[in-house]
């Protein structure tokens, strides 16, 4: 897993690459927490490089969404690979996140 973030307009974009699984989800969780602690509340998770996720990783997405809602912020997802989108669909996560096809669409929404 590789995580990088950048500021685009008002959004903080977190690029998630590689695998998010039982062995590394806590690293992902602490990176997300750092963004909240830094005062970010308009987030985009760019998942173009995310090629594997298990329930441990989904758990962090849900925690981030709960936190964002409690802050009246925004958390958008974009560029989900088809296999990842399928997991979001079957777990019901597609209805609890705003998912955009591209980063530009997320930023422009």
């Amino acid at each position: 897993m590789n995580l990088t973030n950048e500021k685009v307009n008002n959004f903080c974009v977190l690029n998630i690459e590689g695998r998010v699984d039982t062995t590394n989800y806590s690293e992902f969780e602490s990176e997300v927490n750092k963004l909240f602690e830094a005062g970010e509340k308009e987030l985009i998770f760019d998942c173009s490089g995310l090629n594997y996720i298990s329930s441990s990783g989904l758990r962090v997405f849900l925690i981030a969404q709960k936190k964002t809602l409690s802050l009246n912020g925004k958390l958008y997802l974009c560029n989900l690979q088809p296999a990842i989108k399928e997991i979001f669909d079957i777990s019901g996560f597609s209805t609890i996140f705003k998912i955009f096809e591209t980063r530009d669409k997320a930023i422009g929404s």
Partner: peptide
Amino acid sequence: DINLKAEDRPVGGLGIFLISKI
């Protein structure tokens, strides 16, 4: 219950559910 809103969804219990769906 996968129809719950994000606020109401418990953070655990997804693993076995995913197995049963896949």
